[in-house]
């Protein structure tokens, strides 16, 4: 991937969205679900390639349908997200593997290397800003619901709708990050920065700030490194995120001392 100013802006926007969404995914114990859910993109990419439409469009459609299916199964059967996602998306990965042509399969699994077009950059930046903004707008409802759905319900939150909104935003974040990491690694881009932040932060603002920074450093650092060594960006993005997590093991919890500006922002 060539590294131009538009790519830098796209990397930062995608990273920030992945960081913010990842915080709530981790706190809602969706760590494994994130990985499995990203596999749902694969049949969508396969069908898009066969139908000659943009792969990310196919991936986004498949992910949104997957999110709706998970939500429906969750509310109807009362099964945990992890269980539902584990079953549905493993099957999706198998179907996607059969549909997607050989060469494109590798790119779909590990991320692409071509430069982003103007439209891709614009949609990526706008989509990431929208996802991060909508999750932050739901932040307080999500906090109450993850501590106790009953407290949230008593405060007037429609918990089932909130869960659906979050799953849809989660699916969109996966779609937005696919060009970096592909279906196999995108879960790591969402989860590793959030897990790093969870280890270090003492409160919600601290976690959101740290996760957004780690995720942005991972996407921009990984993409920059990929352009320098002429390799695929996806694995390098995840390696940078992994290095941040290892570094966090040497830091004490420090999130309580976040700057005042960050408190206002989050």
């Amino acid at each position: 991937m060539s590294f131009e100013p538009s790519n830098l802006a796209l990397s930062m926007a995608t990273g920030a969205a992945a960081g913010v969404v990842g915080c709530f995914a981790v706190m809602r114990r969706m760590t494994l679900a994130a990985d499995a859910m990203s596999h749902m993109a694969l049949p969508g990419i396969g069908i898009a390639i066969v139908a000659r439409i943009h792969p990310i469009l196919g991936a986004a459609t498949a992910l949104l349908l997957g999110a709706l299916l998970v939500w429906r199964l969750e509310t109807k059967t009362g099964m945990a997200t992890e269980t539902v996602v584990g079953v549905v998306f493993s099957v999706a990965l198998a179907i996607g593997g059969m549909i997607t042509p050989g060469e494109e399969l590798i790119e779909a699994l590990f991320g692409g290397s071509g430069p982003a077009t103007f439209l891709e950059t614009a949609v990526g930046i706008f989509g990431s800003a929208a996802v991060a903004g909508l999750v932050l707008r739901d932040k307080d409802r999500l906090v109450l619901a993850l501590v106790s759905p009953e407290i949230a319900r008593a405060a007037g939150v429609d918990v089932a709708r909130l869960n659906l909104r979050f799953l849809v935003l989660f699916a969109l974040t996966i779609a937005l990050g696919l060009r970096y990491s592909g279906a196999l690694l995108i879960g790591s881009l969402i989860i590793i920065p959030a897990v790093t932040a969870k280890r270090v932060a003492r409160n919600l603002t601290g976690m959101l700030v740290i996760a957004a920074i780690v995720s942005t450093v991972s996407t921009t650092g990984g993409a920059l490194a990929a352009s320098l060594v002429r390799r695929e960006a996806g694995p390098l993005v995840v390696v940078v995120a992994g290095a941040c997590f290892v570094a966090s093991l040497f830091f004490p919890k420090a999130g309580a001392r976040v700057p005042r500006a960050a408190r206002v922002l989050f």
Partner: peptide, 24 residues
């Protein structure tokens, strides 16, 4: 206002009491 029975929450959640009060 609802006060639930003992909650099963992760011990290492980076949520403070203030976060919870602000959310409510």
């Amino acid at each position: 206002g609802y006060v639930p029975q003992k909650l099963d929450i992760e011990r290492d959640l980076p949520l403070s009491g203030d976060d919870l009060l602000r959310a409510e």
